[in-house]
Structure formats: C-alpha cells, structure tokens
Design a protein around this nucleic acid. Structure first.
Ligand SMILES: [Mn+2]
Ligand SMILES: [Mn+2]
Ligand SMILES: [Zn+2]
Ligand SMILES: [Zn+2]
Lengths: 143, 143
DNA sequence: ATTGATATTGAGAATCAGTCTCAATTATGG
DNA sequence: CCATAATTGAGACTGATTCTCAATATCAAT
C-alpha cells in the first residue's frame, strides 16, 4: 500500500523506484513508530539489504514530501522521524529522565488551536506540541 | 535587575561575572525578543564590545540554566533563543512564507495541557507548541 | 594592594549531522 | 535491447556547536 503511494509520487515527478528506496521504505514500515536516521541506516545493513547514508538521507526527504513520514523532533544526536501513513495525528510527551515518548491526542486541543489561529488570521498547516517532563516511572525513581 | 539575577546564579556555583558575560547579557537584553546566536555574536562585535563565539555559546547555556532565556526552536541555520525574564509564557506561530513569528497565549490551552498530563500520570515541566502555516499577509500574496 | 587558587577566555582544532560531488551504474519507456 | 535521464555511494565538504589548552582575569583572603 505505502509502496504504491510512494511509487505514484515518484512517477509523477519523473523519479525512479529503486532497490535502495524500496529497502528503506520497507525497513521504516517495520518500525511502525519513531526512529532516527542512523539506526535506520544500520538496521538496513544488518538485514543484508544495502543503501548508503546519502541515500537514506535523500529518501527520508522524499518520504517526507510524499507525506508518509514526519519529523518528530531534533535532538542533539539527530532528527527523529515517525511513520505517519495510516496513523492518526497526535502529539508527544518526552520524558527528561529516560527518553520515553508518550503519544497523545486530544480533540479539544486541536479545536482550540484552530480557534486561536482563526483569531489571528493565521492559516495553520501543521503544528507540533512537545511536553517535556517526567513519566510515571521516573517520578517514582526520584524519591 | 537581570544582571543581579545572573550574578547571584553564578556566585552560587562559584562562577564569575566577567566583562564578556556582562556584554552578552546586555546585548540580549536590548533585543527583548527572539535572536539567533550568530547575530548576537556579530552585534556584540559591531558595538565595540568583545566576546568570542565560544564565550557566546557558553554564556547562552548559562543564561538558559539560569532561566533568563529559552530556546525557541532549531532551524537549519542554528538555534533561536528568546529573552524570557519578565515576559509571560507564550507559544509561537511560524509563517512558512516569510518567517514571521507570532506570539500567542491561551489560558485554556495551558489548562487543557495540564489536564492531559494528569490523565497520563505525566509531570509536565515545559512545553513548546509551534504552529506552522501562513500569516495574513502571505495568504494574500498567494492569490 | 598582593597573592594564590580557581575560573575564564579565545583561536583554532575537533565533532557530527547532513549535504554535495561526480564518475559509474541502473531504471524505464519505447 | 537502446537511449536517456535519474540514482547511487564513497568521500569531500559545510556549518553549527563543542572542545582544548595556554595565557589571562577574577576574587577572597591576607
Ligand atoms: Mn508519535
Ligand atoms: Mn516568543
Ligand atoms: Zn521517564
Ligand atoms: Zn508570512
């Protein structure tokens, strides 16, 4: 399914659906969640498939333009992406203690943001809300 | 006022309030808003004061720890900070067209976020909400 | 004011994610 | 199969940020 979408996207731009791009897409699809560029690159090597770092970076940009993945956040160690096709929009809590990412979605929150944009004559396209703090477990460990 | 705070912060850690740190703080204070590291560095040179890039980076980190400034966002061209002391908390809309930053604050939004955290047993410390889209002017220009 | 212990500075080296180069290779429509 | 244009990958490059370390500045105690 996602292959079809990517293929169509590439065709429309006169670009090619190569082995490397296929390998990258396949691996990302296997995550069904968050991943960073370097892990992705290493995972691909591990599994015998091949694609250079350059191709991984290039393909991630294509997949983003195509709408299959999104940047979640930039850490000191690189950009974190997530596979979004077939996943509902959501925002993130990030535990400062252990790095855990909690996903959440609130209809009220989304609606409220739309109202705020309207009030400012701003046409919102995307947004990212990241709440940093301590997860349940890390709160306990601190005591 | 902000000098006093920074000074106290440094003393408590056995650190020194040097000419360079003073120059950097002074310049930041003159912005009363958003700024990026490189502009800050250049501005300091322009005005005859002196501080190396290394000192600017080091001092920005200190000021952040001290709570006088905050990171707003990371762009491809570097980190953007803002002076927060004496300014109320707010979030940002970022125009994809022209780069304009609009600040906004919503009591409802803040309260809603707190509720969401509570529901997940998450202890929120900070958050950043960035809405990307098109400002009033850029919406017009597109037509 | 002098001293001494400690923190800071700055020039340039180092780091590191991400991008670019370009010659060799591959996909694709006909 | 062919021709053409896109892609690949190794390694060079970029640009922001951090690190190194010898020279210098700060400051509390004398
Ligand atoms: Mn997610
Ligand atoms: Mn602001
Ligand atoms: Zn945690
Ligand atoms: Zn605009």
């Amino acid at each position: 399914m996602e292959k079809k979408i990517f293929n169509k996207f590439l065709k429309e731009r006169g670009q090619k659906f190569t082995k490397e791009r296929s390998a990258i897409l396949q691996r990302i699809f296997s995550y069904h969640g968050h991943f960073d560029t370097e892990s992705l690159y290493l995972k691909i090597r591990e599994t015998g498939l091949k694609a250079s770092r350059a191709s991984v970076y290039r393909t991630l940009n294509l997949l983003r333009e195509c709408g299959l993945i999104e940047k979640v956040t930039k850490t000191e160690h690189g950009t974190i992406y997530e596979y979004t096709f077939g996943h509902e929009h959501h925002d993130h809590m990030l535990c400062i203690g252990c790095g855990t990412i909690i996903e959440f979605y609130s209809e009220d929150l989304e609606r409220l943001q739309e109202n705020i944009c309207r009030r400012q004559d701003f046409k919102g396209v995307t947004h990212s809300l990241e709440i940093r703090g301590y997860c349940k477990r890390c709160q306990k460990n601190k005591k």
